[in-house]
Design a protein around this nucleic acid. Structure first.
Lengths: 112, 112
DNA sequence: ATATATTAGTTACTTTATGTAACCTATTGT
DNA sequence: ACAATAGGTTACATAAAGTAACTAATATAT
């Protein structure tokens, strides 16, 4: 049975974006290079999965990894051109969400 | 610990799209209403998961389900306005994939 | 020299999601 | 009554994700 009645490139793109966390990682990196610890903190992903995702994104040419041998060591993850070119996709998701997703109630501090 | 440093609406939108299969289901329905069996066939998803995903999409107001009591019964799934409004997102993913994903080699018949 | 602090991960283990295939229900044509 | 068809559901196996403790490398403090 042939699964790929759908355009294989589109399917491939969707499979990248439909993997949990990758969208958020790319979104965060669109605002500039980030360190490992910053990403875990801001996204709420575990080290285990972040590590795995970053390796995949690197292998797919979307993200580059740079080591700065300072002390303590600083390692930055940055989008490549291919990664940055996803900005229009993220922008569309963003604007769709603003129009169609209703604001969730505040859980922490009430904004009155 | 606060996970949502990211805009909650964006996070919510991403969580819909980053669930496996939902992107492809929406993409298929953008070209018009489809039946259950057609979706399984064209996407390559199992009945179990398609059923689950369609229920979620319905609950989220992205898809509507219509029963036509013909014989045999015909049930059609169709995007709501909210669902259709994802077209620009899908279009951006499509055009990104055309520019940045390389064509995979033909596996079935060689196109020479 | 030893102890401590910091970043960036990895390992071992549990829980949840997905894949697979057989089965069920309702309707109708034979 | 029996088979055929659409649209699912159930039970079970495998893969992915969540959690928390641990490790490696380097530099500063004692």
């Amino acid at each position: 049975m042939d699964t790929s009645v759908i355009c294989p490139r589109f399917e491939s793109a969707i499979s990248i974006l439909s993997q949990r966390w990758t969208g958020l990682i790319i979104y965060q990196l669109l605002s500039g290079p980030k360190r490992f610890s910053k990403l875990t903190e801001v996204i709420g992903i575990s080290g285990r999965l972040l590590s795995e995702r970053l390796k995949n994104l690197e292998a797919q040419g979307l993200v580059s990894r740079t080591v700065y041998p300072e002390t303590p060591v600083r390692i930055e993850y940055e989008l490549t051109e291919k990664g940055k070119s996803l900005k229009p996709v993220m922008d569309e998701i963003q604007s769709w969400s603003q129009e169609w997703i209703e604001a969730p109630p505040e859980t922490t501090a009430e904004t009155k």
